[in-house]
């Protein structure tokens, strides 16, 4: 899901700069475009449809029932799936803290490098891209001893996992913010603001942030999508989040697990749609 999220943002970003890009070859015909979209859409859609179909199955009897869906709202199930709800809450907290890390740590760093230390841009980009090349399992091996310290200092609460997630979302968040930074004249705008009497914080808050809104929102939504879909790190570090809970539930009640998986998928889909809109809505405002 995370990878899908990143691809979505790249598409949105590419649209913005398409005018300047050198066009290689001709545009495919409408038919070819629809065909490609249809095939890829089908490949994605088949498992989703299968999942939906599965949630209505009545065991192995071969007929259909809505009891798996209606059962979710009964008092019984509330007790049964308390762990799952707790896991959802954990994942949401993790998503929020991860977004916080991106906004508080990554964003100001990127703005600072962009304005004051442009020579460090390459280095920063390299550092931010690294996590995409490191498999989660390798990351965990490295993180395990770190987390033994983290647990010692901060306790074993779930939210501390956000430190690891903050690293895994770096490549996606970096791309989203950087493309926005490149699209606005950061230096001129902040210099103009400071000649008008604005201090550094005012420049960041009142001038740059509103113009980076698109990139910041995209980075946040992608981070949320990545965190909600994360399984490996949580599982190997013995934490409970949405995905590890889903796996556990699926062993006793596969229907409910699939229903929740569908819900998570729907949420991610909505986030991607919002990112897509952000990407396509702004260029008309920026044309001048």
């Amino acid at each position: 899901m995370g990878v899908l999220g990143a691809a979505g943002s790249h598409l949105a970003v590419a649209k913005v700069s398409a005018n300047q890009a050198v066009r290689i070859g001709a545009e495919p015909s409408t038919l070819a475009r629809r065909l490609i979209l249809g095939i890829i859409g089908g490949i994605f859609l088949i498992p989703v449809i299968a999942m939906i179909e599965f949630t209505f199955r009545n065991g192995l009897a071969g007929d259909y029932t809505t009891s798996h869906w209606t059962g979710l709202f009964s008092e019984d199930s509330a007790r049964t799936y308390r762990g799952l709800y707790q896991a959802i809450e954990n994942s949401l907290v993790l998503a929020a803290v991860t977004v916080g890390i991106v906004l508080v740590l990554l964003l100001p760093t990127m703005v600072l490098v962009h304005m004051q230390f442009p020579r460090l841009k390459r280095t920063l980009e390299f550092i931010c891209i690294i996590p995409i090349t490191v498999p989660a399992i390798v990351l965990v091996v490295g993180l395990a001893p770190v987390y033994s310290v983290v647990v010692h200092v901060l306790g074993g609460s779930t939210w501390t996992l956000a430190f690891a997630y903050g690293i895994t979302v770096l490549p996606y968040a970096y791309r989203a913010i950087q493309s926005n930074l490149d699209a606005i004249p950061v230096k001129t705008l902040s210099e103009a603001a400071s000649t008008l009497g604005a201090g550094w914080m005012t420049v960041l808050w009142k001038i740059l942030l509103p113009n980076l809104r698109r990139g910041v929102l995209a980075a946040s939504f992608i981070s949320i999508a990545v965190v909600l879909g994360e399984f490996t790190i949580a599982s190997l570090l013995n934490r409970r989040n949405l995905q590890t809970a889903l796996l556990q539930v699926s062993q006793s009640d596969p229907w409910v697990a699939v229903i929740f998986a569908l819900a998570a998928l729907a949420l991610a889909f909505i986030l991607l749609l919002i990112i897509g809109r952000l990407g396509s809505a702004t260029p008309s405002r920026r044309k001048s």
């Binding site: 004249p185 705008l189 103009a192 001038i207």
Partner: peptide
Amino acid sequence: MVFQAYSLFP
């Protein structure tokens, strides 16, 4: 100050 590049806050 007025700059060479357009510098109005978009």
